[in-house]
Amino acid sequence: MTYHRKSYAVWEITLKCNLACSHCGSRAGHERTKELSTEEAFDLVKQMAEVGIKEVTLIGGEAFLRPDWLEIAKAINEAGMLCGMTTGGYGISLETAQKMKSAGIRSVSVSIDGLEATHDRLRGKKGSWKYAFKTMSHLREVGIYFGCNTQLNRLSAPEFPCIYECIRDAGAGAWQIQMTVPMGNAADNADILLQPHELLDVYPMLARVARRAYQEGVQLQAGNNIGYYGPYERLLRGRGKEDEFSFWQGCGAGLSTLGIEADGAIKGCPSLPTTAYTGGNIRDHALHEIIKSAEELRFNLGAGTPEGTKHLWGFCKTCEYAELCRGGCSWTAHVFFDKRGNNPYCHHRALTHAEQGMRERVVPKVKAQGLPFDNGEFELIVEPTDVVLPANDPLHFTADSIQWSESWQQEPEVSYSLARS
């Protein structure tokens, strides 16, 4: 049996940022008070290689605002690990792109969170959309492979078909989509979050866009909080191949993934809240000790035993996929309810409720404190679908909200499911 899985780390090398995104989970802007020194960063690179990390993605904040970022990229490359980067793209000149190529950065993901007005609004900077596309042209010119990543929320979802056309035309090879969830700044802007019952209109649209993307050579990559087990699961998670086993197989935090914060905090996944999921700091313990011993990085071990599902509650506890799914994305569940194990952002779940004449929605209950990677708490409401939704909700998402440009008129809706064919 060939072994294909890779282990990778997502490393926030600085929290300093030149954008001010209203959905930013880390509330990036100013650098952290005690970010790792260059020497400490080089030592961490060495330790990552020793524990079996194969690939490192540099993020921020904005990674290129750290003066030694290209030295770190070069060190990662020289240690035998692949180095990639995720960026807001606000300020990568052609000269910088050439330096990135020389430092060994193999791939870049540029954040595009809507069409121009929406992107600039969400990212808090007029002109950031135009510069992101300029960055992509620079990457293309120097020959660095690039893709895009997009937050899926009530502002961006209506524009998804048009966003796709823009990034395809820019030459993006891949497109990762991720649901906006209430961590950090997004916790203070709950009105932009999709509601669980709105997934019923989101997923048919995503499937239609995904199918066209695959046909036109753009690999759509469903993030870990996209899913689960609905009629389009294999299409969305199969990266164009629709293999019979292309479906969600549980949270991978601490199994193949590490998240590293700029001050040396180690988590099992870069998205997880700092307070509840930090296993230790690289300044206090060796990386291999943290991975081996910290309970915060071991919570996904024990699948297939009672230990593997004991954290589940609510709908997820009784779901027929529970043993494999284990509550979907831990980050998503935690930032809504301050504990993992029950995730209403699930297509299968929304469909199940709809068949019973019910729907779910979330309402803010406890505010977040205002720290990086923090979360508040939401109340989960399950109600009959004939109950009138709250008034004064101008961002409410429906299928009618979606903007299909003329080119989509030739594209049939995706009404099939591989599972049923």
């Binding site: 282990s7 009629p231 699961e233 479906f247 193949s256």
Partner: peptide
Amino acid sequence: PLLPRSAAVLES
């Protein structure tokens, strides 16, 4: 020795 480590109806 450390990473990566190891830790389904879809008739629907």
